[in-house]
Amino acid sequence: MTAVHDLVPLNMAPVGQTAYVAHLMGQADDVHRLKELGLREGAMVEVVQSGTPCIIRLAGHKLCFRDCEECRVLVRLGASR
């Protein structure tokens, strides 16, 4: 189990580094929608461009993503490319 302090919000992950979605925080409905889009626990993501909004690569597809105070995606950093 990863300790919470190892996790970073997705939009703050370093550019070009592979990360794994560890935890989705927020309202059940918002979180469910993110999961339907493929942003679910265990999914591999890569931040292509950081910032708000950021651009991430998920399963080979690019998504524009902006989180909010009530809803955060926390990732565990993997090996850098």
Binding site: G26, L34, H61, L63, C64, E69, E70, V73
Partner: peptide
């Protein structure tokens, strides 16, 4: 109201 997260496919 609360701002929902914004996700859009490129």
């Amino acid at each position: 109201g609360p701002t929902p997260p914004f996700v859009m496919e490129l």
